[in-house]
Structure formats: structure tokens, C-alpha cells
């Protein structure tokens, strides 16, 4: 008899899509010809919100709630490293859908739908946004394509038999909703603090399997629909002056900047 089933009256399989992005510490540079951002030789990492998603899935597994955690990434061959990071954090296996195209969120959602249909997870946990494109779309789009409910910007999740409670970070504070399973959850910053993978776990992760797929395997056309006309530097803000005292500050705000009366 399955030991986990003795402890929990329900268990779930979890899919976690992870994206390889420029490390959040990197100050990016726009290419002089304005065709995009210069990514040559910059440090790449797992998107921080995806790390939070992997952490949450692994915690559910450690608690006996999740039976299997699968990490999937859409991207170039190097996205393997991102999947290995997820495996080192505790995911069981990976799927790499390899493409060198910059895939738009809708096409990523269509690919993920293909993975969901093949794997039948009960829960998909995504990051709320990738810190490069800043789109904040993929999870919601996947939910739409599957006809599943969505719990976005989660700061707490409580899975139960057949449903999941999700507390969401919204503009006015916090909102709690309940979703039927299967469901989509996207992570916000306060959901958890992701672990660092230990060396033994990094070694172990090297032996975990990663399936290699292509967008064609899922019959999805990843040709971009949006045309990037150009990518430019934002207007630069010049540093102003230092003031010596509060009195000088208040005086300048009143009489120079005119923002205080």
C-alpha cells in the first residue's frame, strides 16, 4: 500500500513551467541598432518567480501532498540548465521544448497545454511574470486554453481534496478564492523563500531525466504575431543636487520645484 496515501486522503501531480532569463542583478544594455537587448555574455538564471513556483511544488511534495513534480521550459538548448536548477531544488524530471525563436506568451501557453494534455497534472504553478518580458500573461492564458480556473499572484495556497484555496496579492490588500482542481496558480513574492540547491542535490539532479521535445511535437506554430519595431533606451534621469539640511530641502521643494505649498 502506498504510504503517502495513508497520510493524505488526496495527492496531486504538479507541473512547473520555468523560464531562463537575464539574472535580476544584471543591468541590461539596449543594442545600438535598437533591435533588442544585448544578451551576449550576460549572466542568465531561472526567473525568480519560477524559483518560487518550484519551491512551492517541492514543499508540497515534501509534505506528501504532491506525488510528482515536473519542470518544463520552452527555450534554447541552454534552458536545460534552468531545468537542472529546478531538478536540484527537488523536481523529479524535466521537459525541454527546444526552440531558438523568442516565443510569445500565447504560443508558450499553447505548448504548455500540450504538456498538460500529455501529463495530466492536477496543478500547474507558474511565475506571475518573467522579469525580462514583464508580460504577466502565460499562466492566465494557459488557464483559458484549458478551461481551468486561475489563482494569480498567490501569497498562500492550500490544496484540499478536489479544490485549492488561493490567497492573492491584489491592489487593495489580499483576496482569498477557492478553485476547483485542476487549476492554475501563479506565484507572487511572498509565497515562500526559495531554497538554494545543496551540492549533493545538484549532483543528484544530473541523473534525473529530461525529455527533449520541439514545438512541432505539440503541433504549435511559434511564429511571433507581434512585430518588434524597435527596442530603445528609456529617457535617462539626471542626478540632481545634494541638500545639506531639511530646511534647505523644504525651501527647494517650495520655491524651486514648486511641489509643496
Amino acid at each position: 500500500m502506498n504510504l503517502k496515501l495513508q497520510i493524505k486522503d488526496f495527492t496531486m501531480k504538479i507541473l512547473v513551467p520555468v523560464k531562463r532569463v537575464v539574472d535580476y542583478n544584471v543591468k541590461i544594455r539596449v543594442k545600438p541598432d535598437q533591435t533588442g537587448v544585448d544578451l551576449a555574455n550576460v549572466k542568465m538564471s531561472m526567473n525568480p518567480f519560477c524559483e518560487i513556483a518550484v519551491e512551492e511544488a517541492v514543499r508540497l511534495q515534501e509534505a506528501g501532498t504532491a506525488t510528482e513534480v515536473i519542470a518544463v521550459s520552452v527555450g534554447p538548448a541552454q534552458a536545460q540548465e534552468t531545468i537542472r536548477t529546478a531538478l536540484a531544488m527537488g523536481a523529479d524530471r524535466g521537459i525541454l521544448i527546444q526552440t531558438d525563436v523568442e516565443v510569445e506568451p500565447l504560443a508558450i501557453a499553447k505548448l504548455l497545454k500540450g504538456v498538460v494534455e500529455a501529463e495530466s497534472p492536477d496543478l500547474v504553478i507558474l511565475g506571475k511574470q518573467a522579469i525580462d518580458g514583464d508580460n504577466n500573461q502565460t499562466g492566465q492564458m494557459l488557464a483559458a486554453l484549458l478551461g481551468w480556473p486561475q489563482g494569480t499572484f498567490a501569497s498562500e495556497i492550500k490544496p484540499e481534496a478536489g479544490n485549492i484555496g488561493v490567497t492573492r496579492e491584489i491592489d487593495g490588500g489580499l483576496q482569498t478564492i477557492k478553485l476547483n482542481l485542476p487549476a492554475i496558480v501563479t506565484t507572487d513574492l511572498r509565497l515562500n523563500e526559495p531554497r538554494y540547491a545543496s551540492l549533493p542535490n545538484i549532483m543528484k539532479a544530473k541523473k534525473k531525466p529530461i525529455d527533449e521535445k520541439t514545438p512541432e511535437d505539440y503541433g504549435v506554430d511559434v511564429t511571433p504575431q507581434l512585430e518588434i519595431v524597435k527596442v530603445a533606451e528609456p529617457p535617462v534621469r539626471e542626478a540632481g543636487v545634494k541638500v545639506e539640511t531639511i530646511q534647505e530641502l523644504v525651501d527647494k521643494l517650495k520655491n524651486e520645484a514648486g511641489v509643496l505649498s
Partner: peptide, 23 residues
Amino acid sequence: ATTNGKNFMPRIAALLDMPQLSD
């Protein structure tokens, strides 16, 4: 692009099979 808009809009876009521009 409030938390409400960010939440529902991509769902609408995907149901219409249209890409979305954010923000």
C-alpha cells in the same frame, strides 16, 4: 494594468486566440 486587469485580460486574449500587449 491593475491587478484585476492583469488577472482577467490574458484569459480574454487567449480565449480569442489573440496576443496581448501588457502595460
